[in-house]
Simulated scan of single mutants.
Amino acid sequence: MDTSGIKAVVFDCDGVMFDTAQANRKFYNEILKCFNKPPLDDEQFQNIHMMTVTTAVEYLFPEMDDHRPVYEMIKSIGYASVIPFMLMEPGLLELLDNLKQAGLVRGVATNRTNTMGKVLIEHKLKKAFDIVVTASDVANPKPFPDQLEKIMDAFALLPRQIVFIGDSIYDQKAAESAGTWFIAFKQPGLQAHAHAVSMAEVGELLKLSKYNS
């Protein structure tokens, strides 16, 4: 991976910036419980981890023609209740600071929708990013390239001037379609230009060591 021309580093949220397994499982299990359905099995959890809320609801409640009761329950319970259970990836703050010192654009491309703002506020990351693009900001969520293309347009960047860090096949396909560099985070099975298992390793791949204190 040639890092010499990189001008922006874009992060997926769930599974990259945060370990959201406990929070997401807790939230969706609460919804399922309200409709007398069993808790998520491992396959279901792996799938909803990549999905927008809309797609997840359709996936978990295929027998329902009208999903309005589910959305009403989601609104009633509110994702904010489980945001504190999201665990920030160690080294994220240091990496973001190093990216800022290096003069690189810091972005987020996530299939979250209206919960992303609450996540950033709760974990004091509101000012840590130059641009945040959610599924509700574009016509098509990941695996489509719309989010990455929106970031490119916002900063007049070429595809190879962006590195996208993700952990799902949706992220991989979005990067492939957009033509950006892709770092797979803690997912050795994904096809990527590079793989990393920690934020420190991402920093090394991006040759940010000179900014470390």
Rank of each mutant, 00 (worst) to 15 (best):
Met1Arg: 03
Thr3Ser: 13
Ser4Val: 04
Ser4Phe: 02
Val10Thr: 05
Phe11Asp: 03
Phe11Gln: 04
Asp12Val: 06
Asp14His: 02
Val16Ile: 05
Met17Gly: 01
Asp19Ser: 04
Asp19Arg: 03
Asp19Asn: 11
Arg25Trp: 03
Arg25Pro: 04
Arg25Ala: 09
Glu30Arg: 09
Ile31Phe: 02
Ile31Pro: 03
Phe35Lys: 09
Lys37Val: 02
Pro38Cys: 07
Pro39Arg: 08
Leu40Asn: 01
Glu43Gln: 06
Phe45Ala: 05
Asn47Val: 09
Asn47Met: 08
Met51Pro: 02
Thr52Asp: 04
Thr55Gln: 14
Ala56Asp: 03
Glu58Ala: 08
Glu58Leu: 00
Glu58Ile: 00
Pro62Cys: 00
Glu63Ser: 02
Met64Ile: 01
Asp65Trp: 00
Asp65Met: 02
Asp65Leu: 02
Asp66Ile: 01
His67Leu: 07
Pro69Gly: 01
Val70Ser: 00
Tyr71Asp: 01
Met73Trp: 00
Ser76Phe: 01
Ile77Leu: 04
Tyr79His: 13
Tyr79Gly: 15
Ala80Thr: 13
Ala80Lys: 12
Ser81Phe: 00
Val82Ile: 11
Ile83Arg: 11
Ile83Met: 07
Phe85Leu: 13
Met86Gly: 05
Met88Leu: 10
Glu89Arg: 10
Pro90Cys: 05
Gly91Ser: 05
Leu93Val: 08
Glu94Lys: 14
Glu94Phe: 11
Leu95Thr: 13
Leu95Ser: 12
Asn98Ala: 13
Ala102Pro: 08
Arg106Thr: 12
Asn111Asp: 14
Thr113Glu: 15
Thr115His: 14
Ile121Arg: 14
Ile121Lys: 15
Glu122Asp: 14
His123Val: 11
Lys126His: 13
Asp130Trp: 08
Ile131Tyr: 10
Val133Ile: 15
Val133Asn: 10
Thr134Asp: 09
Ala135Glu: 11
Val138Trp: 05
Val138Met: 02
Ala139Glu: 15
Ala139Leu: 12
Asn140Glu: 14
Asn140Ile: 06
Lys142Pro: 02
Pro143Lys: 05
Pro145Gly: 02
Glu149Asn: 11
Lys150Phe: 10
Lys150Ala: 14
Ile151Arg: 04
Met152Gln: 14
Asp153Cys: 09
Ala154Gly: 05
Phe155Lys: 11
Ala156Asp: 15
Leu157Gln: 02
Pro159Gln: 02
Ile162His: 07
Val163Lys: 12
Val163Glu: 06
Phe164Glu: 01
Ile165Trp: 03
Ile165Glu: 06
Ile165Val: 12
Asp167Pro: 06
Ser168Thr: 15
Ile169Thr: 15
Tyr170Arg: 07
Ala175Gly: 00
Ala175Cys: 01
Glu176Asn: 10
Ser177Leu: 14
Ala178His: 09
Trp181Leu: 11
Ile183Asn: 13
Ala184Trp: 10
Gly189Ile: 09
His193Cys: 08
Ala194Asp: 07
Ala196Pro: 10
Val197Ala: 11
Ser198Cys: 10
Met199Asp: 04
Ala200Ser: 11
Gly203Ala: 15
Leu206Met: 11
Leu208Trp: 00
Leu208Asp: 01
Ser209Ile: 10
Ser209Thr: 13
Asn212Met: 06
Asn212Cys: 09
Asn212Thr: 08
